[in-house]
Design a protein around this nucleic acid. Structure first.
Length: 892
RNA sequence: GGGCGGGUAGCUCAGUUGGGAGAGCAUCGGCCUUACAAGCCGAGGGUCACAGGUUCAAGCCCUGUUCCGCCUACCA
């Protein structure tokens, strides 16, 4: 031991927290996340799905950003100029809600403050709390180019928003009109169709009698919302409906109001539903609104924006909508007009922000005419300019795009991009412009007032891929990185965001915003339920990180991220992968004991079997991991590396290399082993770095002979392949033989309950000279790893009494157990094994006896079965032979 | 109503041109072997939801049934 070894020896277990903090700061300080505006090599760009400023890191973010980080780090190792564009979203409604709550706690409200002061308060809030999610992303290890961080309310991005609005307006793709929209009475704003969450709810169908005006009876309609009857302006029946063909009256009296309304005929009415008669409430139902337009009906708005009944509701004015329902039902019942109530399930829309029940209501709003934009977005996917992965999402994308309806973009809140439209007080014309006009361009009046509504937050995030890069200016950044390489996102915002970015990108940049869209799954709880605060089943990623470390957490996410499949996460799984990090750590601890001085480079001569083998396995693992990452198969990549590190590097290679490393085979063997160990370890750290950046960086710096950050290393493949690393089928074959023999001996040891401390005497019989030679050459390894006192190789024939037998492909192993062997136990063991072989042989023989199989199966399959058959037959023969022998001994 | 995904070991899940049913955890047995007990060495465990079909051959392809989950929709 030397002093250096002690000094730099690693702690016994890996302690992540200090390491994570230290290296993250190092990376940032060194500017290793920064993209070059112009690149010589390939450019690789990802824009982050901007989290809400109000957000705190949840599992969805964690998965999403871990994947992006893996890709970015991987591409950097491959030499790409990587831009990972970070930022946050101003989240209009959510943020306004948060700040309003804060104001309420302070005993005030936004109305009292006024618009300007309120917005100032929001900015204050953002300054103070808005960076929480950013620092959480950093704890996750996210290697974003933080110097370019953007916010959807930044001046630059706001300019992009205004520009887009003006151009779309001038192109006739933005219009303003009075239509039925989704109104959230709690948030006090309009919502787009997408922002309404439908939920199946148990409700009632109220059958209400509307007296015919001529006293000849009544028409019964079924409704789930009796309170809206106050706003009915017609009843509708299907023109084909024979039940209603010969009505004597063409009008009914609207109960509780005394109004008289017409009976109309419209094909929309389903004869089979309810009574086949429909009440028409144009102000509070989108379908009724359309019927109304077809029949030129009156519109009566009985529910106001506050969710309370308007003056048009007569005596019910001012009542809450649900209170009013009760009163109306009671009144109808009292008049004998409530025929019956039937239980009925139907879906009710809820605000995706506050979960309050959304009210379809008539309102004057701004809309984007999306059909033409959608067509271009469909075409771009159809012709492959953008590829959606997994492909199954393509269909969903088309489905939505084909059935798209106009997008309501105005919101009646204050926090957001105020719509750049002004109304002239003199001529009432609307002026839409980038900057506030001084005078009305139509009449010259100075009496201009700006539209108070702001835009849907998604309107600005739709521009994210190019607005963050400086558009509308034609920047270097755009030239280098637009279209971006891939968008990594959850399917829950496929429509909200991805689809709209496609539309806007194509319209304004004349090019798709991303070449690929990788749609990943959702993280669910261990029972497969969506994590939500109300269910109380959320796992906080930060708590997990605190407990197990970022690397363990990231590796878990990667290992479970099979394409197109949801991740059910529980802490136990993270704990499992923490063991992996620890395993790597300890392997490093061992390796570094032997690698204190800089190594001689690996020479191809004088290289041992275990070295050649692990270098070959390393090459395969490298290729497989790269191939998997290139195809977004994160779980495969993680799995390959896990297996390589644990079950090849640790379980076999390190054990096999110990004698050489410990100097038992001489100085030159030791030096050669060190060189190989160094190379394997060096490359392994690089392969693992995208997944577990912190521990690999820490170990990288402990490894002598490395310079700078591991982030700046080359991915060891192709032109950057490391010396000596190559596939070596011969070495793999020999190792497979030795491993096979060692495992067979261990198996006997285990099954016969022989203490590991007891060194065994082993004889191997084989008639295969190559095998004999191989065992003779590499017998030391068997002796070492199977713990033998002696090993001999011989041609078949000699009898070995008091020996247990094991088979390997090519021969028989005799394990001398004089005085230890339990014959009956050994006989049992052999019987069991023979049983297995016989069964296998049966199915195998059947195949070979099957004429059709022999006629039709391809050659390589037949050969395989044939070879398998021969091996099995030999095995069977040997096993029964051994069994006979044991039985004979048993009888003595 | 339409669409999508899933049902594989006790649990969580892999299984990509149809030819060996696998991993991790859990369980059982043996080990404090000088990198690691967060470990090492072994072992057991499955009618691949069910029923048909195509094929020499089906976890994989086709049809039907059933259960679960999600997305979407203007039957009040």
């Amino acid at each position: 031991m030397n002093a250096g070894l002690v000094e730099s020896a690693l702690e016994k277990g890996y302690e992540p927290h200090e390491v994570e903090k230290r290296w993250y700061e190092f990376w940032e300080k060194q500017g290793l996340f920064a993209a070059a505006e112009k690149s010589h090599g390939p450019a690789y760009a990802i824009v982050i799905p901007p989290p809400n400023v109000t957000g705190v890191l949840h599992m969805g973010h964690a998965l999403n950003n871990t994947m992006q980080d893996i890709l970015c780090r991987y591409r950097r190792l491959r030499g790409d100029n990587v831009l990972w564009m970070p930022g946050t979203d101003h989240a209009g409604i959510a943020t306004q809600n948060v700040v309003e709550k804060k104001l309420a706690a302070e005993g005030t409200n936004r109305q009292a403050l006024g618009r300007e002061k309120f917005i100032e308060a929001v900015w204050q809030w953002r300054k103070k709390y808005g960076n929480a999610i950013i620092s959480q992303l950093k704890r996750l290890g996210a290697s974003c180019d933080w110097g370019r961080e953007r916010f959807t309310m930044d001046e630059g991005l706001s300019r992009a928003v205004r520009k887009v609005f003006v151009e779309l307006y001038e192109a006739g793709l933005i219009y303003r009109g009075r239509y039925i929209i989704n109104w959230c009475p709690r948030c006090n704003t309009a919502l787009s169709d997408l922002e309404v969450e439908h939920e199946e709810t148990a409700g009632r169908l109220y059958h209400i009698r509307y007296p015919l005006i001529d006293g000849s009876g009544h028409l019964t309609v079924a409704t789930t919302r009796p309170e809206t009857m106050l706003g009915d302006t017609a009843l509708a029946v299907n023109p084909e409906d024979e039940r209603y063909l010969y009505l004597t009256a063409q009008q009914v009296e609207l109960p509780l109001t005394g109004r008289v309304i017409p009976i109309i005929r419209d094909g929309y009415v389903e004869m089979a539903f309810g009574t086949g008669a429909l009440k028409v409430t144009p102000a509070h139902d989108p379908n009724d609104f359309e019927i109304c337009a077809r029949h030129n009906l009156e519109i009566v708005r009985v529910i106001g924006d506050d969710g309370k009944m308007t003056e048009a509701a007569g005596i019910y004015t001012g009542l809450d909508r649900y209170e009013c329902r009760q009163k109306v039902v009671a009144a109808l019942e009292a008049k004998g007009l409530l025929e019956k109530m039937v239980d009925h399930n139907h879906s009710i829309g809820h605000c995706y922000r506050c979960k309050d029940v959304v009210e379809p209501n008539l309102s004057k709003q701004w809309f984007v005419k999306v059909k033409p934009l959608a067509e271009a977005a469909i075409a771009a996917v159809e012709d492959g300019r953008t590829r959606i992965l997994p492909e199954t999402w393509t269909k969903t994308y088309y489905e939505w795009m084909y059935n798209i309806r106009d997008w309501c973009i105005s919101r009646q809140i204050w926090w957001g991009h105020q719509i750049p439209a002004w109304t002239c007080g003199a001529c009432h014309k609307i002026v839409v412009a980038m900057e506030a006009p001084m005078v009305c361009p139509v009449c010259g009046s100075k009496d201009l007032t700006q539209e108070t509504d702001v835009l849907d937050t998604w309107f600005s995030s739709a521009l994210w891929p190019f607005s963050t890069m400086g558009w509308p200016d034609q920047t270097e950044l755009l030239k280098t990185f637009y279209p971006t390489s891939v968008l990594v996102t959850g399917f829950d915002i496929l429509f909200f965001w991805v689809a709209r970015m496609m539309m806007m990108g194509l319209y304004f940049m004349k090019a798709v915003p991303f070449r690929e869209v990788y749609v990943h799954a959702l993280v669910r709880d261990e029972y497969g339920k969506k994590m939500s605060k109300s269910k109380g089943n959320v796992i906080d990623p930060l708590e997990v990180i605190d407990k197990y470390g970022t690397d363990a957490f990231r590796f878990t996410l990667a290992a479970f991220a099979a394409m197109g499949r949801d991740i059910k996460l529980s802490e136990a799984r993270v704990e499992g992968y923490r063991h992996f990090i620890n395993k790597l750590w300890n392997a490093a601890r061992f390796a570094l004991m032997h690698l204190q001085a800089p190594q001689e480079p690996l020479k191809s001569d004088n290289i041992s079997l275990p070295d050649r083998w692990i270098l070959s396995r390393l090459q395969r693992a490298t290729n497989q991991a790269a191939e998997a990452l290139d195809n977004y198969r994160f779980n495969d990549a993680a799995g390959v590396l896990y297996k390589f590190v644990w079950h090849e590097l640790c379980d076999w290679y390190l054990e096999a290399a110990k004698p050489a490393l410990n100097g038992k085979l001489g100085d030159s063997a030791r030096d050669a082993a060190r060189a190989a160990l160094w190379q394997v370890f060096h490359d392994t750290l690089i392969l693992l770095h995208p997944f577990i950046p912190f521990v690999t960086e820490e170990l990288w710096h402990k490894l002598p002979g490395t310079t700078g950050s591991i982030m700046q290393a080359d991915f060891p493949q192709g032109a950057h392949a490391s010396p000596g690393v190559s596939e070596n089928p011969d070495a793999e074959a020999v190792m497979a033989l030795l491993m096979d023999i060692i495992t067979a001996i261990r198996n006997i040891r285990g099954e016969m309950n022989i203490a590991p401390s007891l060194a065994l005497k082993v004889m191997i019989q084989t008639d295969n000279e190559t095998i004999r030679a191989r065992i003779a050459t590499h017998g030391d390894m068997i002796v070492n790893l199977a713990r033998l006192s002696s090993l001999s190789v011989e041609p078949p024939g000699a009898k070995h009494k008091s020996a247990a037998t094991a088979l390997f492909e090519g021969g028989t192993i005799f394990i001398s157990l004089a005085g230890v062997i339990d014959f009956s136990q050994e006989a049992k063991r052999l019987e069991k094994e023979l049983d297995k072989v016989v069964k296998e042989l049966e199915t195998n023989s059947k195949k070979l006896a099957n004429k059709e199989f022999m006629d039709k199966a391809p050659d390589h399959v037949k050969e395989k079965v044939q070879a398998g058959h021969e091996a099995l037959a030999e095995k069977q023969q040997k096993l029964s032979h051994n069994l006979e022998r044991i039985r004979a001994l048993q009888e003595n």
